[in-house]
Simulated assay, not measured.
Amino acid sequence: MATHPDISVETHRLGDDSAQTLVRAEQCDALAAHHIAHVAVVDAAVPYTMVRTHLSGAFMQVCLAGEGCTLLDGRWSVHRPGRVSFSPAHVRHAFHCVPGTRWRLAWVRFMPSSPHSVDGAMAPTITPFDGRVLEHAILGLAAEMAAAADPGTCAVWVDVIERYVARILAPLQREPRLVTLWNAVRADLARDWNVAEMAAIATTSEEHLRRLCQQRLGRSPGRQLATIRMAHAAHLLATGDLKVEVIARLVGYVNPFAFSNTFKRVTGFRPSEYRLRPRGTRHDGEEDGH
């Protein structure tokens, strides 16, 4: 069984047996134009570990070979080949290698200004996707940057990356019944929602709504509701100065203690602790490439 790292402490541990190919927006104008902070392909082994307690921009990660562990929605998931994970901005995010297994992965880190990073754009998820073409596009961009760095050629590689990002993320947002439902929920988070009301908005039965959410989002309607509420609360804590009690009411919690407990379960921090964390000054929020 994998031993998970302390997720309350910022960690960047590459290790001597791991290597990464990375391109940053500071190096590539085409990435900056698409609001992508950086892209990377990593071939990793223990002790490779990343923990980010303040993810300022959304993060998409594809497992290419081997396996590792990724923290999503406050829980650890085994990340295997052909699976892509998405972590929205303002959440706790972590991943690490497991003993005896190499892990090859590709990632795309979005700037806070990206449409993928805005509040409510996406919920944490892990879903099937073959990321090999995305891997080749990132490596192609890196090779061009290391050679002529021709702006037109770089723009072509970045366009391929952006198209595959859209191909990964768009299906998660295309189920019209769920889009209608979660748009309605986000517009009224303070409401005391129940599954019957949500199923009515989605024009489906409660049981079918549960199946749809599990298939598309990997979680129940109730857990999706809590995830959206905590993501919006994290956004409010990170970007404003409203009192915790006010934020609790805005996201549907009459009892601030219940809100605090749920927030800690999802993010690993009490709301007051979350607000006091240092905030990155770079557009990607990091110094090390994640």
Rank of each mutant, 00 (worst) to 15 (best):
T101F: 00
P128C: 13
R104N: 14
A155I: 06
V156F: 05
A166M: 04
D119G: 06
A170R: 12
F110K: 10
L178V: 03
P171Y: 03
P124Q: 12
P99S: 11
L139Q: 14
Y164E: 03
M145P: 12
H136D: 04
C97M: 10
A190D: 05
P112R: 13
W182S: 04
I126F: 01
I161V: 12
G131P: 10
V165M: 04
R104W: 14
S113P: 06
A123S: 13
I168G: 00
I126Q: 11
I161Q: 05
F129Y: 15
A166N: 11
E175T: 01
R174W: 00
S113E: 14
W157E: 15
L178Y: 02
V160D: 06
P176V: 10
V133G: 15
G152H: 09
P151C: 00
V98A: 09
A184L: 02
A184T: 08
R104A: 15
S114C: 01
P176A: 11
P99E: 14
A137W: 12
L172T: 07
G152F: 13
W103S: 12
T153R: 12
R191T: 08
L134W: 09
V160Y: 07
A121P: 08
R177D: 01
L139I: 13
L172A: 13
A155Y: 11
P112K: 15
R177I: 03
V158I: 12
Y164W: 06
A106M: 04
G152P: 08
A142T: 07
D188V: 04
D188S: 09
R163M: 04
M145T: 14
L181C: 02
W157S: 15
W103Y: 14
T125G: 14
R102V: 10
R163W: 04
D150F: 08
P99F: 01
T153Y: 01
V179F: 02
C154G: 01
P124I: 11
R109Y: 10
A148M: 13
A121F: 04
I138L: 08
L189N: 03
T127I: 11
A149H: 07
P128L: 13
R132F: 07
